[in-house]
Amino acid sequence: MTTVETAAESIGTTAAGGPLLEVRDLHVEFKTRDGVAKAVNGVNYSVSAGETLAVLGESGSGKSVTAQAIMGILDSPPGRVAQGEILFHGQNILALPESERRKLRGNKMAMIFQDALSSLNPVLSVGFQLGEMFRAHQGLSKKDAKKKAIELMDRVRIPAAKERVGDYAHQFSGGMRQRIMIAMAIALEPDLIIADEPTTALDVTVQAQVMDLLAELQRESNMGLILITHDLGVVADVADKIAVMYAGRIVETAPVHEIYKRPAHPYTKGLLRSIPRLDQKGQELYAIKGLPPNLLAVPSGCAFNPRCEMAQDICRTDVPPLHTVTEADGGELPGRGSACHFWKETIHG
């Protein structure tokens, strides 16, 4: 596999060891008629090359808005980044002019959306749309671009790529369309891919195919991958580490396997308990009480406090910082954090 030299070389490669992308204290607001909705309230996370970070959350958690801010595709207005930094290869891309950021998109970072059908242009063949990436960014000829497009379709394992290169989006099934979206995202060998609910619209049997493909491509080319999802099951398969978001904040971080065994935040714990299991019938489901937060009126203190069984007075007044989570005897648990005043009680029982 060859590395394609791309136009936007203004941003160099990461110094060894440093993360590929680092989000620092990001705040995003949306102006609405009823007031300012604080969609993201101080998010920190990082992804290294070859690493997969899963960002898990429900609607209104701010998981997608954070991704849009990274890509620079926030609906603005009404949305705006109110505060914070996004370091990509060590450089704060929020400070870049729009023309520079545009060069980053596609070249250095790419995004895969949930709805592949509406992300593809219905009146252009998929081959043309794939080839366009090379013509626009690398000045390839039409013929070479088409060849590249077929190569790409092969890479994402679309059967009979040669014959199907002239087909239109609606002629492909949902799973195949999502593969085309993936092909488009990896076309210019970006360093970072953000996948926003990439398999949510797909059937279970197709979901597994697409997730496997994504994971494999990522391994091959050592990209950083941010996987945004609401599905705890999808996360378990492919992610290295996980950040759980609630009401615009990260409430828990952990290496992926540990979070299922020992969640350190009552929200994560509740979520895990509320999912029915495939391998046993189970009794009545545990249900987190109450409603997801209204972003126009996020509860004071810990945003989860009205729904939390462990909530005390302090939870209603003080916003919990992301505590470093350790073993009961103080032993280290690398990568673990919990934004709960009572994380010890939560994880150690």
Binding site: F30, T32, A37, A39, G57, E58, S59, G60, S61, G62, K63, S64, V65, Q68, D75, P78, G79, Q114, D115, L117, H170, Q171, F172, S173, G174, G175, R177, D196, E197, T200, A201, L202, D203, H230, N294, L295, L296
Partner: peptide, 17 residues
Amino acid sequence: TAAGPAPAAPSAAEPSV
């Protein structure tokens, strides 16, 4: 060959309006 109705996925694009 079109995909069926997607299970409407919870997404957090903007606060519920």
